[in-house]
Amino acid sequence: MTPADLSLTVLHAVRRAVDDGALRVDVPPRVKVERTRPGGVGEYASSVALTLARPAGRTPLDVAGILRERLRDVSGLRRVEITGPGFLNFTLREDADADLVREILAAGTSYGHGTDLAGTVVLLAGTTAPRDALVTETLARLLRSQGADVEIGRYGEWLHVHPGEYDPSYGEDVLRWAFLRAAPHDRPLDPAPLLVPHERNPLFRVRYAYSRTRRLLVNARQLGFSPEPGDCDGAALLGLLRDHPSALLAAARHRAPDRVARHLEAVADALLAFQHTVLPLGDEKPSAAHRSRLALAEAAGTVLAGGLSALGISAPDRI
Protein backbone atom coordinates (compact mmCIF):
# COMPACT_ATOMS: atom_id res chain seq x y z
CA MET A 1 0.00 0.00 0.00
CA THR A 2 1.50 3.28 -1.14
CA PRO A 3 1.04 6.62 0.70
CA ALA A 4 -1.50 7.57 -2.00
CA ASP A 5 -3.40 4.32 -1.34
CA LEU A 6 -3.33 4.99 2.40
CA SER A 7 -4.56 8.55 1.90
CA LEU A 8 -7.51 7.24 -0.14
CA THR A 9 -8.19 4.55 2.45
CA VAL A 10 -8.39 7.10 5.29
CA LEU A 11 -10.55 9.37 3.13
CA HIS A 12 -12.91 6.44 2.51
CA ALA A 13 -13.07 5.87 6.28
CA VAL A 14 -14.07 9.52 6.78
CA ARG A 15 -16.72 9.17 4.07
CA ARG A 16 -18.11 6.01 5.67
CA ALA A 17 -18.27 7.71 9.06
CA VAL A 18 -20.21 10.60 7.49
CA ASP A 19 -22.46 8.25 5.51
CA ASP A 20 -23.50 6.25 8.57
CA GLY A 21 -24.00 9.37 10.71
CA ALA A 22 -21.11 8.88 13.12
CA LEU A 23 -19.56 12.19 12.00
CA ARG A 24 -21.39 15.29 10.83
CA VAL A 25 -18.79 17.13 8.76
CA ASP A 26 -18.05 17.94 5.15
CA VAL A 27 -15.83 15.24 3.67
CA PRO A 28 -12.46 16.86 2.85
CA PRO A 29 -11.18 16.59 -0.74
CA ARG A 30 -8.09 14.71 0.45
CA VAL A 31 -6.42 13.38 3.59
CA LYS A 32 -2.73 13.98 4.19
CA VAL A 33 -0.58 11.13 5.47
CA GLU A 34 3.11 11.45 6.25
CA ARG A 35 5.99 9.21 7.19
CA THR A 36 6.12 8.83 10.95
CA ARG A 37 8.81 11.00 12.50
CA PRO A 38 11.76 9.39 14.33
CA GLY A 39 10.57 7.87 17.59
CA GLY A 40 6.97 7.76 16.40
CA VAL A 41 4.61 4.80 16.13
CA GLY A 42 4.06 2.85 12.93
CA GLU A 43 5.14 3.77 9.41
CA TYR A 44 2.69 6.57 8.56
CA ALA A 45 0.62 9.06 10.50
CA SER A 46 -2.27 11.47 9.87
CA SER A 47 -3.65 14.44 11.78
CA VAL A 48 -7.05 14.25 10.05
CA ALA A 49 -8.87 13.68 13.36
CA LEU A 50 -7.51 16.96 14.73
CA THR A 51 -8.64 18.77 11.57
CA LEU A 52 -12.18 17.36 11.70
CA ALA A 53 -12.73 17.64 15.47
CA ARG A 54 -13.95 21.24 15.66
CA PRO A 55 -16.41 21.14 12.72
CA ALA A 56 -17.67 17.76 14.02
CA GLY A 57 -18.19 19.14 17.54
CA ARG A 58 -16.16 16.24 18.95
CA THR A 59 -12.77 15.88 20.59
CA PRO A 60 -9.88 14.78 18.36
CA LEU A 61 -9.62 11.55 20.34
CA ASP A 62 -13.32 10.83 19.71
CA VAL A 63 -12.90 11.42 15.96
CA ALA A 64 -9.75 9.31 15.87
CA GLY A 65 -11.60 6.46 17.59
CA ILE A 66 -14.48 6.66 15.09
CA LEU A 67 -12.05 6.49 12.16
CA ARG A 68 -9.98 3.70 13.69
CA GLU A 69 -13.10 1.52 13.93
CA ARG A 70 -13.63 1.98 10.20
CA LEU A 71 -10.01 1.18 9.42
CA ARG A 72 -9.67 -1.87 11.64
CA ASP A 73 -10.53 -4.44 8.95
CA VAL A 74 -8.69 -2.85 6.02
CA SER A 75 -6.66 -5.64 4.49
CA GLY A 76 -3.56 -3.48 3.93
CA LEU A 77 -3.21 -2.36 7.54
CA ARG A 78 -1.62 -4.50 10.19
CA ARG A 79 -2.30 -2.03 12.99
CA VAL A 80 -3.97 1.38 13.55
CA GLU A 81 -3.07 3.23 16.75
CA ILE A 82 -3.99 6.57 18.31
CA THR A 83 -1.28 8.67 19.89
CA GLY A 84 -1.04 12.10 21.49
CA PRO A 85 -4.11 14.33 21.19
CA GLY A 86 -5.58 12.26 18.33
CA PHE A 87 -3.00 11.31 15.71
CA LEU A 88 -3.73 8.16 13.72
CA ASN A 89 -0.69 5.93 13.23
CA PHE A 90 -0.54 3.14 10.66
CA THR A 91 1.52 -0.02 10.39
CA LEU A 92 1.15 -1.61 6.96
CA ARG A 93 0.90 -5.22 5.91
CA GLU A 94 2.85 -6.72 3.07
CA ASP A 95 0.92 -8.05 0.07
CA ALA A 96 -2.17 -6.05 1.05
CA ASP A 97 -3.32 -5.40 -2.50
CA ALA A 98 -2.92 -9.05 -3.46
CA ASP A 99 -4.92 -10.04 -0.37
CA LEU A 100 -7.77 -7.75 -1.42
CA VAL A 101 -7.88 -9.24 -4.92
CA ARG A 102 -7.84 -12.78 -3.48
CA GLU A 103 -10.66 -11.86 -1.12
CA ILE A 104 -12.83 -10.54 -3.95
CA LEU A 105 -12.18 -13.50 -6.25
CA ALA A 106 -12.90 -15.96 -3.43
CA ALA A 107 -16.18 -14.24 -2.49
CA GLY A 108 -17.32 -13.76 -6.08
CA THR A 109 -20.36 -11.56 -6.57
CA SER A 110 -21.08 -11.86 -2.82
CA TYR A 111 -18.07 -9.66 -2.06
CA GLY A 112 -19.34 -6.81 0.11
CA HIS A 113 -22.15 -8.81 1.68
CA GLY A 114 -21.95 -8.74 5.45
CA THR A 115 -23.65 -9.00 8.80
CA ASP A 116 -23.63 -5.39 9.99
CA LEU A 117 -27.44 -5.33 10.01
CA ALA A 118 -27.90 -8.81 11.47
CA GLY A 119 -30.71 -8.83 14.01
CA THR A 120 -32.38 -5.82 12.38
CA VAL A 121 -35.95 -6.32 11.18
CA VAL A 122 -37.04 -3.94 8.43
CA LEU A 123 -40.66 -3.56 7.35
CA LEU A 124 -41.07 -2.21 3.81
CA ALA A 125 -44.51 -1.07 2.74
CA GLY A 126 -46.02 -2.62 -0.35
CA THR A 127 -46.96 -0.43 -3.28
CA THR A 128 -48.19 -0.66 -6.86
CA ALA A 129 -46.49 2.59 -7.93
CA PRO A 130 -43.93 1.42 -10.51
CA ARG A 131 -40.84 3.17 -9.21
CA ASP A 132 -41.67 2.67 -5.54
CA ALA A 133 -42.24 -1.03 -6.14
CA LEU A 134 -38.87 -1.38 -7.85
CA VAL A 135 -37.03 0.58 -5.15
CA THR A 136 -38.71 -1.55 -2.48
CA GLU A 137 -37.65 -4.76 -4.21
CA THR A 138 -34.06 -3.50 -4.58
CA LEU A 139 -33.84 -2.23 -1.01
CA ALA A 140 -34.97 -5.62 0.25
CA ARG A 141 -32.12 -7.25 -1.69
CA LEU A 142 -29.55 -4.74 -0.37
CA LEU A 143 -30.75 -5.01 3.23
CA ARG A 144 -30.65 -8.81 3.13
CA SER A 145 -27.12 -8.68 1.71
CA GLN A 146 -26.11 -6.95 4.95
CA GLY A 147 -27.83 -9.47 7.20
CA ALA A 148 -31.15 -7.70 7.86
CA ASP A 149 -34.47 -9.53 8.04
CA VAL A 150 -36.87 -7.86 5.63
CA GLU A 151 -40.63 -8.10 5.46
CA ILE A 152 -42.34 -6.67 2.40
CA GLY A 153 -45.99 -5.87 1.85
CA ARG A 154 -47.63 -7.22 -1.27
CA TYR A 155 -47.00 -5.13 -4.36
CA GLY A 156 -47.63 -5.28 -8.09
CA GLU A 157 -45.46 -6.49 -10.93
CA TRP A 158 -43.62 -3.24 -11.48
CA LEU A 159 -42.54 -3.89 -15.05
CA HIS A 160 -46.10 -4.31 -16.24
CA VAL A 161 -47.66 -1.22 -14.68
CA HIS A 162 -45.56 1.59 -16.15
CA PRO A 163 -47.26 4.73 -17.31
CA GLY A 164 -46.89 5.51 -21.01
CA GLU A 165 -43.57 7.35 -20.69
CA TYR A 166 -41.98 4.11 -19.39
CA ASP A 167 -42.77 1.76 -22.23
CA PRO A 168 -41.66 -1.76 -21.22
CA SER A 169 -40.10 -2.11 -24.68
CA TYR A 170 -37.14 -0.19 -23.29
CA GLY A 171 -36.20 -3.41 -21.52
CA GLU A 172 -36.01 -4.26 -17.85
CA ASP A 173 -32.32 -3.42 -17.38
CA VAL A 174 -32.71 0.07 -18.84
CA LEU A 175 -35.82 0.82 -16.81
CA ARG A 176 -34.18 -0.42 -13.63
CA TRP A 177 -31.19 1.88 -14.14
CA ALA A 178 -33.46 4.81 -15.04
CA PHE A 179 -35.41 4.36 -11.80
CA LEU A 180 -32.55 3.43 -9.47
CA ARG A 181 -29.71 5.69 -10.64
CA ALA A 182 -31.62 8.83 -9.67
CA ALA A 183 -31.87 9.59 -5.96
CA PRO A 184 -35.28 8.60 -4.54
CA HIS A 185 -36.37 12.24 -4.24
CA ASP A 186 -35.34 13.08 -7.85
CA ARG A 187 -37.12 12.36 -11.11
CA PRO A 188 -36.12 9.10 -12.83
CA LEU A 189 -33.66 9.33 -15.70
CA ASP A 190 -34.93 9.47 -19.26
CA PRO A 191 -34.58 5.84 -20.39
CA ALA A 192 -34.14 6.62 -24.12
CA PRO A 193 -30.46 7.73 -23.90
CA LEU A 194 -29.69 4.59 -21.90
CA LEU A 195 -30.30 2.53 -25.03
CA VAL A 196 -27.42 4.23 -26.88
CA PRO A 197 -24.07 2.36 -26.77
CA HIS A 198 -21.95 5.44 -26.05
CA GLU A 199 -19.46 6.47 -23.37
CA ARG A 200 -21.86 9.20 -22.22
CA ASN A 201 -24.33 6.44 -21.30
CA PRO A 202 -23.44 5.38 -17.72
CA LEU A 203 -25.28 2.07 -17.92
CA PHE A 204 -23.40 1.20 -21.11
CA ARG A 205 -20.05 2.15 -19.50
CA VAL A 206 -20.66 -0.07 -16.49
CA ARG A 207 -21.76 -3.10 -18.51
CA TYR A 208 -19.08 -2.53 -21.15
CA ALA A 209 -16.39 -2.35 -18.45
CA TYR A 210 -17.55 -5.70 -17.10
CA SER A 211 -17.49 -7.22 -20.59
CA ARG A 212 -13.94 -5.91 -21.08
CA THR A 213 -12.75 -7.89 -18.05
CA ARG A 214 -14.19 -11.07 -19.56
CA ARG A 215 -12.46 -10.34 -22.87
CA LEU A 216 -9.14 -9.63 -21.15
CA LEU A 217 -9.27 -13.06 -19.54
CA VAL A 218 -9.91 -14.69 -22.93
CA ASN A 219 -7.08 -12.74 -24.58
CA ALA A 220 -4.69 -13.62 -21.75
CA ARG A 221 -5.44 -17.31 -22.14
CA GLN A 222 -4.64 -17.01 -25.84
CA LEU A 223 -1.29 -15.46 -24.88
CA GLY A 224 -0.62 -18.28 -22.44
CA PHE A 225 -1.01 -16.65 -19.03
CA SER A 226 -3.62 -16.45 -16.31
CA PRO A 227 -4.45 -14.08 -13.43
CA GLU A 228 -2.34 -14.26 -10.29
CA PRO A 229 -2.86 -11.72 -7.46
CA GLY A 230 0.25 -9.76 -6.59
CA ASP A 231 1.60 -6.28 -6.12
CA CYS A 232 0.65 -3.96 -8.99
CA ASP A 233 -0.26 -0.41 -9.83
CA GLY A 234 -3.86 0.71 -10.04
CA ALA A 235 -4.27 2.57 -6.74
CA ALA A 236 -7.50 4.30 -7.81
CA LEU A 237 -9.14 1.04 -8.84
CA LEU A 238 -7.93 -0.80 -5.73
CA GLY A 239 -9.32 1.95 -3.52
CA LEU A 240 -12.74 1.71 -5.14
CA LEU A 241 -12.81 -2.08 -4.83
CA ARG A 242 -11.84 -1.78 -1.19
CA ASP A 243 -14.74 0.65 -0.70
CA HIS A 244 -17.38 -1.59 -2.32
CA PRO A 245 -18.59 -3.20 0.96
CA SER A 246 -19.14 0.21 2.52
CA ALA A 247 -21.03 1.39 -0.58
CA LEU A 248 -23.44 -1.54 -0.29
CA LEU A 249 -23.85 -1.02 3.45
CA ALA A 250 -24.46 2.72 3.09
CA ALA A 251 -27.02 2.10 0.33
CA ALA A 252 -28.87 -0.32 2.60
CA ARG A 253 -28.73 1.90 5.68
CA HIS A 254 -29.80 5.06 3.87
CA ARG A 255 -32.37 3.31 1.64
CA ALA A 256 -30.52 4.72 -1.38
CA PRO A 257 -29.85 2.28 -4.25
CA ASP A 258 -28.48 5.19 -6.28
CA ARG A 259 -25.33 5.00 -4.14
CA VAL A 260 -24.59 1.58 -5.60
CA ALA A 261 -25.13 2.83 -9.16
CA ARG A 262 -22.81 5.80 -8.62
CA HIS A 263 -20.17 3.55 -7.10
CA LEU A 264 -20.36 1.19 -10.09
CA GLU A 265 -19.84 4.12 -12.45
CA ALA A 266 -16.67 5.08 -10.57
CA VAL A 267 -15.38 1.48 -10.66
CA ALA A 268 -16.12 1.22 -14.38
CA ASP A 269 -14.33 4.48 -15.18
CA ALA A 270 -11.26 3.45 -13.17
CA LEU A 271 -11.21 0.02 -14.83
CA LEU A 272 -11.54 1.43 -18.35
CA ALA A 273 -8.56 3.69 -17.64
CA PHE A 274 -6.57 0.76 -16.20
CA GLN A 275 -7.37 -1.90 -18.81
CA HIS A 276 -4.72 -0.76 -21.29
CA THR A 277 -1.93 -1.86 -18.92
CA VAL A 278 -3.17 -5.45 -18.52
CA LEU A 279 -1.98 -7.25 -21.66
CA PRO A 280 1.59 -7.30 -23.04
CA LEU A 281 2.23 -4.94 -25.94
CA GLY A 282 4.01 -5.88 -29.15
CA ASP A 283 6.77 -8.42 -28.54
CA GLU A 284 6.57 -7.99 -24.77
CA LYS A 285 6.37 -11.27 -22.85
CA PRO A 286 3.77 -11.82 -20.11
CA SER A 287 5.27 -11.03 -16.72
CA ALA A 288 4.28 -11.19 -13.06
CA ALA A 289 3.05 -7.61 -13.41
CA HIS A 290 0.70 -8.62 -16.24
CA ARG A 291 -0.64 -11.55 -14.22
CA SER A 292 -1.32 -9.34 -11.19
CA ARG A 293 -2.98 -6.65 -13.33
CA LEU A 294 -5.16 -9.29 -14.94
CA ALA A 295 -6.20 -10.53 -11.49
CA LEU A 296 -7.07 -6.97 -10.48
CA ALA A 297 -9.15 -6.52 -13.65
CA GLU A 298 -10.95 -9.80 -12.95
CA ALA A 299 -11.67 -8.64 -9.40
CA ALA A 300 -13.06 -5.35 -10.73
CA GLY A 301 -15.32 -7.29 -13.09
CA THR A 302 -16.51 -9.37 -10.16
CA VAL A 303 -17.43 -6.21 -8.24
CA LEU A 304 -19.26 -4.77 -11.26
CA ALA A 305 -21.23 -7.99 -11.74
CA GLY A 306 -22.11 -8.15 -8.05
CA GLY A 307 -23.20 -4.52 -7.94
CA LEU A 308 -25.36 -4.88 -11.05
CA SER A 309 -26.90 -8.01 -9.56
CA ALA A 310 -27.75 -6.06 -6.40
CA LEU A 311 -29.72 -3.69 -8.64
CA GLY A 312 -31.34 -6.57 -10.52
CA ILE A 313 -29.48 -5.72 -13.74
CA SER A 314 -27.71 -8.26 -15.95
CA ALA A 315 -23.97 -8.23 -16.70
CA PRO A 316 -23.43 -9.58 -20.23
CA ASP A 317 -20.07 -11.13 -21.12
CA ARG A 318 -20.19 -9.47 -24.56
CA ILE A 319 -21.68 -6.10 -25.36
Rank of each mutant, 00 (worst) to 15 (best):
E298A: 10
A148Y: 01
A192V: 00
A96Y: 15
D26L: 12
E34W: 04
N219V: 05
V303T: 07
G40Q: 03
G40V: 10
A125L: 13
G126F: 01
V18W: 08
P184A: 06
L67C: 04
L100S: 01
A17V: 03
N201S: 08
S314Q: 04
R24Q: 13
R141I: 11
A56L: 14
R215G: 07
T109S: 13
D149Y: 12
A268E: 07
A266F: 06
R24S: 14
R70P: 06
V121Y: 10
A178T: 05
R200M: 12
L11M: 00
R15C: 06
T51F: 01
P202D: 14
L281C: 08
E151V: 13
A251V: 05
V25Y: 08
P168L: 04
A45D: 03
H113M: 09
V74D: 06
L294D: 03
L139P: 02
E43A: 12
L71S: 00
R70L: 06
E137A: 13
G42W: 04
T128S: 14
D132L: 14
G282R: 10
R215V: 04
Q222A: 12
T109L: 11
A295N: 02
L23H: 03
Q275E: 14
A22Y: 00
D269Q: 12
L117C: 08
L279G: 01
D73W: 07
R215H: 08
V267K: 09
L8H: 08
L217H: 00
A13W: 02
D26M: 05
L175S: 04
H254P: 00
D233N: 13
E228W: 02
L92F: 08
G153P: 10
G57Q: 03
L189T: 05
I152T: 15
M1L: 15
H290F: 01
T302G: 07
P29Y: 00
P85K: 12
A182D: 10
L180R: 04
L139D: 11
